[in-house]
């Protein structure tokens, strides 16, 4: 069974690690907007890609780590390149996928240099003004946290059910896959809820 980890936080003392989480998130949004704006100029896209590489080196993460962050979306990048090559010009065939890869890499840079608890704290602060409308910011943070927690959990359930199917029949059946997945997910939700209550998060 594969292990899906969350948060990919890589401990360190680089300027990116020391930067407040809120500042990093604002910079991430700004970089996203900037990349969308400059992607029509190939030289600017190349410069952004170069800056992303420098940022990973400054963060002490290395180029191997950068490649591992972008690799999961390679199919999307190739597809985007092919579509742009067919429908537009060859410049777009590399500037658009490189821009996308830069966005993915920058988002991964933020999560790799920021503890999940710091990201949750930012969500709580951002949701603060909604308190006057009856929203509990701490609950928003908890919601984000549980969303993040459930990704590896569901991935683990999927693996477990697939392994059970292979062990028992070897044939894939959507019904025999989906039903136990939903039941197991609901059961896990109960277990997490009980754990949260036991740790005093219900009050």
């Amino acid at each position: 069974m594969r292990h899906v980890t969350l948060g990919m936080y890589q401990p360190g003392t680089s300027p990116f690690h020391r930067m407040p989480a809120g500042v990093k998130l604002v910079l991430l949004v700004a970089c996203g907007v900037a990349i969308v704006v400059v992607r029509r100029w190939p030289w600017a896209v190349a410069a952004v890609a170069g800056l992303v590489v420098v940022a990973y080196l400054v963060a002490g993460l290395g180029l191997g780590f950068l490649v591992r962050q972008v690799r999961p979306v390679w199919v999307l990048l190739v597809f985007t390149a092919a579509m742009n090559l067919l429908a537009r010009a060859w410049q777009q065939a590399w500037t658009v996928p490189v821009s996308l890869a830069c966005l993915v890499a920058l988002a991964a840079l933020v999560t790799a240099t920021t503890r999940t608890s710091d990201l949750v704290d930012v969500a709580v602060v951002v949701a603060g003004p909604a308190r006057r409308f009856g929203v509990q910011p701490e609950r928003v943070g908890l919601l984000l946290l549980l969303g993040l927690r459930c990704v590896p959990l569901v991935a683990g359930l999927v693996d477990g059910i697939r392994e059970a199917q292979i062990a028992r029949s070897g044939a894939f059946s959507l019904g025999a896959f989906a039903a136990p997945l939903v039941i197991a997910a609901l059961r896990e939700a109960d277990v997490i809820g009980e754990a949260l209550v036991a740790r005093g998060i219900d009050d």
Binding site: L6, R115, T116, S117, I192, A195
Partner: peptide, 17 residues
């Protein structure tokens, strides 16, 4: 099932939030 946070330090700190 009891561990909520992704890293050891964060999980120990979780109860103090």
């Amino acid at each position: 099932r009891q561990i909520i946070m992704p890293t050891v330090r964060e999980d120990v700190a979780f109860g103090l939030r």
